[in-house]
Simulated assay, not measured.
Amino acid sequence: MSRLRRIAMWAVPGLAVALTTAAFVLPANAEPTVDRDKLTTAQKLKLDNAWVDPSADLQFGTEPLASVRTAAEAAVPGASCQISVDAAVALSIAMTWPETAPSGEPPSPMTLSRYDTQPTLGDPEGRAPGLWFHPGIGMWQMDSAGLGTDYTAGEAMNVEYTAGRAVPGILASYCDSLNGGASEASARRAAWQPWVACWEGACEDTYQRALAGVVTVDGVTNLGGAEPRECEFGGVKVECLFVNAANAQGANWWADPAGGRSPVAAPFYVYRLTEGDAVTEIRYWLAADSGAATDVQAARPFGGNARDSLTWSAGAGLCDMTTDRGTC
């Protein structure tokens, strides 16, 4: 069992939500900012499950928190408004619990979104039920339709990599609003606007609680249980990541087939393929992992929304050189 210890944010050295209705009443100071009649079913479900039980500790992985703090320490000196490193850290992680861990458990860097059910996210030939392309990835739920459009799933899961880009962007949005005359609370809401779970005040709640300190959990790494590998395909060697939901670290409700609306992807490899100016995310399923008769791959061009830009095909063969699996 992971060792837990409560620390204040400033004491750190260096550096998609279950579909059950919350059992507690929303805080009286919640300020809905959207017209629910205009929301999609997925957005409504996310908001219904965004609030973290006030009796639950806010937990966060020790290594991911250190990475976020490192990014905040680098970004704060260049910010266009005054903000402490502690506040920048809290601002940057407040959405991770409402988005991926409303239980208060450590948000998992491996989190795969479970709200989207568009048929275009699945293998059109139906070769196996686990051939599913989750569009939202990681504790920040970087979605291919927006913030994650130029990330592979492996990059979106990597807290060290993602924090280096996400934290400065969140601070820039906050400062732009603050410098434009917004109050600090309104500026925070503006910075969190890309995250649906924040739209009705849940992230202000976790922000204030995170400022007071979180419980750090050892054993949740920056990759959340995904495993770096070296892969070879077509004579080309690439750095790849092996993603198996069964190995997720931190909050893992989403890894349960009954935990959301969409299927859960079978274990897959993910890597970035660069050909000239074209960059493509490849997710690759070995037949042995998916249960399909052949290997299968899904390709998404950077800048493309997975809901309408995927190309599925039989895999031409991939060798996991680290473990000698696949076509080696």
Rank of each mutant, 00 (worst) to 15 (best):
A88T: 06
G138S: 01
P27E: 09
A245H: 04
G201C: 06
A316Y: 06
A190V: 14
D277H: 09
D53V: 04
A266V: 06
D123M: 04
A72P: 11
E125C: 09
E105Y: 10
A101Y: 01
M142H: 09
F268Y: 15
D176L: 08
Y115A: 13
G148P: 01
V279E: 10
V270N: 14
W192V: 02
E281M: 04
L147K: 14
T40D: 04
A202K: 07
W10R: 15
W285P: 00
A88Q: 08
R188A: 05
A16C: 11
D320M: 02
A226R: 01
Q43T: 09
T323S: 10
V68E: 01
G169F: 00
E63C: 02
T40H: 02
V220C: 07
Y269C: 05
T70M: 11
S262Y: 03
G315N: 00
G326M: 09
G235L: 02
F133K: 11
L310W: 02
Q59H: 05
P124N: 07
A75Q: 02
G180F: 01
F242Y: 14
E232T: 06
P13Y: 07
W254S: 05
V68F: 07
A22K: 15
I137V: 15
E239H: 11
T20A: 11
R300P: 00
P13D: 08
G317R: 04
L286S: 07
C198G: 05
R114M: 03
F133S: 08
A87E: 15
P257I: 10
V52T: 13
T152C: 03
D324R: 14
W253V: 12
L286G: 03
C231H: 03
D150M: 12
L211W: 03
V215L: 09
E160G: 05
T33D: 09
G136E: 08
T274C: 05
A11Q: 15
T96W: 00
G138N: 01
V85Y: 07
V34S: 06
S67F: 07
T96M: 06
G138Y: 00
G317K: 06
N305V: 10
H134E: 13
A72H: 09
R69C: 04
N305R: 11
A190Y: 10
Y161M: 12
P124V: 04
A87N: 15
M157E: 01
T152V: 06
W312F: 08
L211Q: 12
A128R: 10
I93T: 07
C319H: 04
G104N: 10
E281H: 09
A101M: 05
S67C: 14
W51L: 10
L112V: 07
I93W: 00
Q82M: 12
N158Y: 02
A172Y: 05
A101D: 01
T149L: 12
L273I: 12
P13A: 10
G259H: 11
P32V: 08
F302D: 03
F233E: 12
M139A: 12
Q43E: 13
L273Q: 14
L223K: 00
S173K: 14
Y271P: 08
T111M: 02
